[in-house]
Simulated scan of single mutants.
Amino acid sequence: MKKRLAVLLSGGAVVLAACSPGHGARPSLVAGDSGAPSTSTSTSASSSGSEPGPSSAAPPTTPQPTSLVKPPAVQPPPATGTPAPAGTPGWLLTAGNTGLAAHGLSCDSLPLYKGGDAPPAGAVISGVRIETSLTLFAGDITIEKSCVRPNQLNEGSHIVTTNGPCEDSCQVTGSPVTIRDSEIDGSKLSATTIAKSCAFLGVATLQRNYVHGMGSGICFFNTGKTLDAVAEGNYVTKLRAGGDSHNDGATVRDFPTGSNPERRLVFRNNRIDCSTGNDTGAMFIQTYGGDIDNVTLEGNLLEGGGYNLGLEAGFGNKYGRNMRAVDNRFNSTGWGASYVTDKGLGYKWAEWRDNFANNPGVAENEGQAVSP
């Protein structure tokens, strides 16, 4: 069996290391692989009785939606320098109508942030350029119209996290964190440094941000038991691979709802592109860190290599019966649009509706219908 990558704990920090599938220290993020995933007999890909792991087998032969050469868009995106209106779907987002550029700002135009890398509870950080990584474990923190662009980072560390001190596992923030109208930029760091890192890791509300230059983008992992997680109106792109990295545009690795059945995890109206050459895919949902439920994906454009959307049970955990994917668009340059590995659960998505290959030449970009 080939090895997979996991985020393990070393000296109190979250780092990436190679490991065989199985339970390691918590949190331990098994990254997606660059081979086609093995799936159960109830899915569109081949069956495997082992825990998810890299495969040298060819991708499934089930026909998948393909990218087409498209005529000009019927519905043009909002102009550069103008924020995308509320409710704009992911397929109309650009680097010019998200993040700082939507407000006529840039990283270089902002004054340097002079605060610490672990802001206190109640902090509101606005309109600054932050050249360090950030630990937002204190909670009750807002970052807005700012640029987070570190000049230095330990290899495998994350640019922004809500994790607290780590021993056998990492502590979870107890209060909400919000990052909005900002830019998270890994371009000042080498690909080797950031290939196995996330732009954001933890639990928070992320709105209208431009995320680029990283190994992976939005990582909802070590999410705790109570807080909601929301990603809305973000554009994730220009991710970078290095060595044996396995890159995700966005990923969910745990979201248990037993203690708070009302909590929700939502990806709405995002554009997420994972095109590194070492791609797991744009959206990878895997129960490595714990059970996952109450997840809604709506209005997103998922692009790039690997599979655009993967849903996997395993590692002694399961996804629940309230997993929903509605009105998303897919632009696969890899193995296909979507797959499910149910590990014998006998069910897939609770709701799968109005999901299409992305075709800008028709109304609402509704190309060929996509199956789960």
Rank of each mutant, 00 (worst) to 15 (best):
P120T: 07
D117K: 13
L112Y: 10
K145R: 15
P150K: 02
V148K: 00
K114N: 13
A118M: 11
P111T: 05
L153P: 05
L68T: 15
A95M: 09
P71S: 14
A121H: 04
Q75W: 13
P150A: 04
A79E: 14
I141K: 02
D140R: 06
V69W: 12
V148Q: 00
A101P: 12
Q152Y: 12
K114D: 11
Q152K: 14
K114Q: 14
H103C: 13
T132N: 12
I143Y: 03
W91N: 04
T80W: 07
N151A: 10
A95N: 15
A95I: 00
D140M: 07
Y113F: 14
I143V: 11
E131G: 11
S109V: 00
G122K: 09
S126M: 06
A84E: 00
A101L: 08
P78G: 15
T98W: 00
L134N: 00
A138T: 09
G99K: 04
P71W: 13
V128H: 14
E131L: 06
T88C: 08
C107L: 04
V148S: 01
T132P: 10
T88A: 09
V124I: 10
V124C: 11
G122W: 05
A123L: 01
L153Q: 11
V128S: 12
P78Y: 05
P85L: 05
V124R: 13
L110A: 04
A101G: 11
G139H: 03
H103K: 14
F137M: 08
Y113D: 05
E131R: 10
H103A: 15
D140H: 10
T94D: 08
W91M: 06
F137G: 02
I130Y: 01
G81Q: 13
G87F: 10
P89V: 11
V128E: 08
A138H: 06
N97K: 08
T82F: 01
P111G: 09
P150Q: 06
S146A: 13
G122M: 06
L110N: 01
P71I: 04
G90R: 02
V69L: 06
A102Q: 07
P76S: 09
T88K: 03
P76T: 06
L112K: 11
L136M: 10
A79Y: 05
P150N: 07
L134R: 01
P78N: 14
T135P: 01
K114C: 03
L136W: 02
V124M: 09
V74R: 15
D140C: 07
G99R: 01
P119S: 11
C147A: 09
A121M: 02
D108V: 08
E131T: 15
I143F: 02
Q152E: 14
S109C: 09
S106N: 10
A86M: 03
